[in-house]
Write a protein that binds this DNA or RNA. Sequence first.
DNA 1: TCTAATAATTGGCTTTACCAATTTTCCGTC
DNA 2: GACGGAAAATTGGTAAAGCCAATTATTAGA
Lengths: 231, 231
Amino acid sequence: MTSVRPAERRLYQQVAEQIRALVQSGAFACGDRLPAERELALQLGVSRPSLREALIALEIEGAVEIRMGSGIYVVSAAKTRSSRLAAIGESPVELMQARAVVEGAVTLLAAPQITPEVLVSLRGTLESMRAEIEEGRTPTDRDRQFHITIAEQTGNHVLSRIVGDLFDERHSPISSQFRNRFETRETWRLAVAEHEAILGALEMRDALLAQAMMHAHLEQSKRRWLESDPR
Amino acid sequence: MTSVRPAERRLYQQVAEQIRALVQSGAFACGDRLPAERELALQLGVSRPSLREALIALEIEGAVEIRMGSGIYVVSAAKTRSSRLAAIGESPVELMQARAVVEGAVTLLAAPQITPEVLVSLRGTLESMRAEIEEGRTPTDRDRQFHITIAEQTGNHVLSRIVGDLFDERHSPISSQFRNRFETRETWRLAVAEHEAILGALEMRDALLAQAMMHAHLEQSKRRWLESDPR
DNA sequence: TCTAATAATTGGCTTTACCAATTTTCCGTC
DNA sequence: GACGGAAAATTGGTAAAGCCAATTATTAGA
């Protein structure tokens, strides 16, 4: 079987998509065992290494579970990790409320573990934000950095990942329609002031206050978002 | 080169980790081109297909960019987005700690909004858990339902999604190596007792106590996990 | 009937080989 | 000497066959 096909995308991506389609079409139910690698490769008309590459991609995104010597199993269809994005009913308002709750708790946990060096770093980030705003630029990256840095002080990778993911979802296609009138220079100035309050509480070693300020910041941010959008 | 190595984890995961380490150690800077596949495979002492599997994993998590005919490039370090999948460094211990923090805060938010009907439903779930344990079955689904139901009372879809995802990650292939001796009947009985404490606090309308009990439950769960595994 | 050895199945990894896209090199031309 | 284009070298993409290791199913023996 000599390949004469014009490479459209990487083969493993095409194969992975085919398998996803097979699962979603109901050809294989959740928990079912897929055909053996050798047979499946034959069915799909690709070599076994190529099929394996596709399976690894599917394994990483949680669509299948590979058990050595046993077989390849379709994992609980509901949470394929790809369905995490674009979940129905998740409005930007809920997103910001979730951030307020989660990052509030994270700040409380992180506060006692923040070193003086990190405080200096945070202040630098804040100054950079201020500068970029006055230059007319949108300091989204600095904003992210501020929140991530605090989360990282928990020493818990899972928590900092969640904080980062939630931040990024604000800029996903779903929410992008909102951020138009939201990011004016004035609203950014308010945001910086709230960041200043958080940092101040951290510098005073007041964990509870820092938590409250973080919570308030994201609630305010949500409110600004709402008021900026007339829908 | 005949393989005589005792398979510890999947090879592609080990290789991917090696490459991540190389990048983070500064051996390759952002934007740099890695050695060619053939050479890199030789350096790392693995076959090219195995190296390719690792590269695909790294490509999916955004750590590298593969350009056909050109080479493999290290992508901007900051945005590795290894996020969505459980990145290395995210030990099950960190996962449980993250759950304790997040679900504690979620419980506090949910508690005032829980209706009597939901309380009845939660008690039913708990009784089902008890029954299944005595039958020798593992009540994982009921356990999940208990936690999800509470999260849903926040009325926030993002929060309930997070709680669900974190629960499911415990049973992902990455963490599965831990769950062997963890799920004994005795540990499950302890878990049910802690669930009972949470539900009791909710019935008493004591939101702060419920938060504390939820936090304690997941911390205890983490501890049990650790002690059950002698590594 | 139950248990333990055994055979068949299945994923894990290696080796070799060739194709396709890209980049580099080099030579002819202006 | 500078420019342009074609050939060659480089690099990723894929295929095929084979063996090892873990799991599961089967079968023979107690």
